Amino acid sequence: MTIRPVPAAARLTGTAPEIPPHDRVRFRTAAHHARRLYPGCVGELLHRELLAYAEFGHLFDREALVPRLATEILACPLRPAHEHQPGA
């Protein structure tokens, strides 16, 4: 059996557009808001997704779901802390 090297993949040039700084801040703010709005696993998942999107996910989101999610989360008012307490 002869081992043949696999040709190298084309070099990536990094020409994808950067997300504007104000949008990056908006997604990070929505991430922190989501964690406070939805305590537990749901809030943690939303938090992680929004932060990942702010860093590099915007390059892969063709349906613009995460920007719509961020808008929806930021439109929700936070409940007072006593409403988060079980039995309150």
Rank of each mutant, 00 (worst) to 15 (best):
P17H: 05
G40Q: 08
P39I: 09
V66L: 15
R48K: 14
M1L: 11
G43I: 02
A81Y: 09
D23W: 07
L46G: 04
R79S: 05
I3N: 13
E83T: 10
L78S: 06
Y53C: 00
H82Y: 15
L69N: 03
E83L: 15
A81W: 10
P86W: 09
E72C: 04
P80D: 07
I3T: 11
G87S: 09
E44N: 11
G43Y: 04
R79K: 07
H82N: 07
L50A: 03
A88H: 13
V6Q: 15
L50W: 03
A81R: 10
A54G: 10
R24N: 00
I73A: 01
A52K: 03
A70F: 02
E83W: 12
G14M: 04
R48G: 12
F27A: 00
A64F: 13
L65V: 13
A81E: 13
E44A: 08
E72M: 10
A8W: 06
R26C: 08
F60G: 06
T29W: 09
L51H: 02
L12Y: 10
E55M: 00
G14S: 06
A30H: 08
L78Q: 01
H82K: 06
G87D: 04
E44W: 05
M1D: 10
I3L: 13
C76R: 14
A31R: 02
G87V: 02
R62N: 13
P67F: 05
R35T: 11
R24F: 00
L51G: 01
L46P: 00
R24V: 02
E49T: 10
A30L: 08
A10Q: 11
T29V: 09
A31Q: 03
L50G: 01
E44P: 00
L78T: 00
T2I: 11
L50Q: 02
R36M: 12
T71P: 00
P86A: 12
F56I: 04
T15V: 15
A31E: 08
L12D: 06
F60A: 08
Q85A: 12
L59T: 04
G40D: 08
G14V: 05
A31L: 04
C76N: 06
G57Y: 01
E18W: 05
A70N: 00
L12W: 09
A10H: 06
R24H: 04
C41A: 14
E63S: 14
R68Y: 09
R79V: 04
H32C: 06
L51N: 04
A16R: 12
D23S: 03
A30Y: 04
P77A: 15
P7K: 12
R4F: 10
R68W: 07
L65N: 05
R79F: 09
H58T: 01
T13K: 15
V6N: 13
L65T: 11
D23A: 08
A75W: 03
G40I: 06
L65F: 13
A30I: 05
T71A: 14
I3V: 15
H33S: 02
H33R: 03
A88L: 04
E72H: 09
R11T: 10
F56W: 07
L12A: 14
P17I: 08
A70E: 01
A52L: 09
P5C: 11
H58D: 07
P17E: 07
D23E: 15
F60K: 03
H84K: 08
